[in-house]
Amino acid sequence: MNAVTHDSSLDADARAAVTIGRPADELRTLWLRPDTQSRIWSHFADVTPIDERTAEWVAHGPAGGEYRWRTELAAGGTNELRWSSSDGADVANAGVLVFQPAPGDRGTELHLDVRFDPPGGPLGQALSKLFHLVPREIVLKALYKFRALALTGEIPTTDPQPAARKGGTDR
């Protein structure tokens, strides 16, 4: 994300942005729906809403490892959402999602910044890269899934289509 167009107080490890042809209030409402987070982060973790502000996350890591944490939404303005993990999280993290008007009245720009603190310090970071769990890719994929959901009402997938080769009957 370009620092000229977005100034965040979060020192992010992962930054991504996407433009969606919908108004910001509609996108904010969709993001906050209980089922949205579990759908857009499914490539990274299982997300279970606890209440309106809290969710339980379970990510499956290399060698069968399982990492758990809770996130809680913080108070924020109408143009942003902030969250952070609770104390004792296996993967400490914090994030901010900012909604800005897109140029040319083309909808809304979403800027997502997330900071991950993988388990094991430098070793955990090396393992993350080795197993292709790169934070920017995780964040970017979540935004693309959210855009698809916002524009079409669904997230496209190749599972379990027979010709998709992954999980299909044509192995």
Rank of each mutant, 00 (worst) to 15 (best):
R33K: 14
Q161I: 01
L130H: 14
T152N: 09
P118R: 12
T169K: 12
Y67P: 01
L123N: 07
T19V: 11
T48G: 07
Q100F: 02
P34W: 07
G65W: 05
A92D: 06
A55R: 15
H111E: 00
K129M: 07
T157F: 06
R39W: 06
S86M: 09
G121C: 05
P101Q: 04
A59V: 01
H43C: 04
G121V: 02
T5R: 15
E26S: 11
E52F: 10
A63D: 05
N79K: 14
V47N: 12
T158W: 07
E137V: 00
R53S: 13
W41F: 14
D105P: 00
G104L: 02
P135D: 04
S8I: 03
A63T: 06
I155F: 09
E137S: 10
Q125N: 11
E66D: 08
P162E: 07
S86V: 10
R115S: 10
E109G: 07
D90A: 14
D46I: 10
E26L: 06
F44C: 09
D159I: 00
G76T: 13
T19M: 11
R147V: 00
G153W: 01
G104M: 01
G167W: 04
P135K: 09
K129S: 11
T36F: 07
A45H: 06
R171G: 08
E26V: 08
Q37R: 15
L130A: 13
P62T: 04
S42V: 08
P160G: 09
P23E: 11
L143R: 08
L110P: 01
G95Q: 06
N93M: 14
P62G: 12
T48H: 13
D7E: 08
L151K: 05
P156I: 00
T152A: 09
G120Y: 07
L140Q: 14
L81P: 04
K145S: 09
R165D: 01
T152Q: 07
E52T: 11
A24K: 11
T5A: 13
F116M: 13
K141C: 02
E52I: 01
T54F: 03
I155T: 00
T19I: 05
G95S: 05
V98K: 09
D13Y: 03
S128T: 05
P118A: 06
G76V: 06
Y67R: 14
V91K: 10
T108Y: 02
F131P: 03
W83T: 05
G167D: 03
R53T: 12
G76D: 15
R53W: 04
A89K: 09
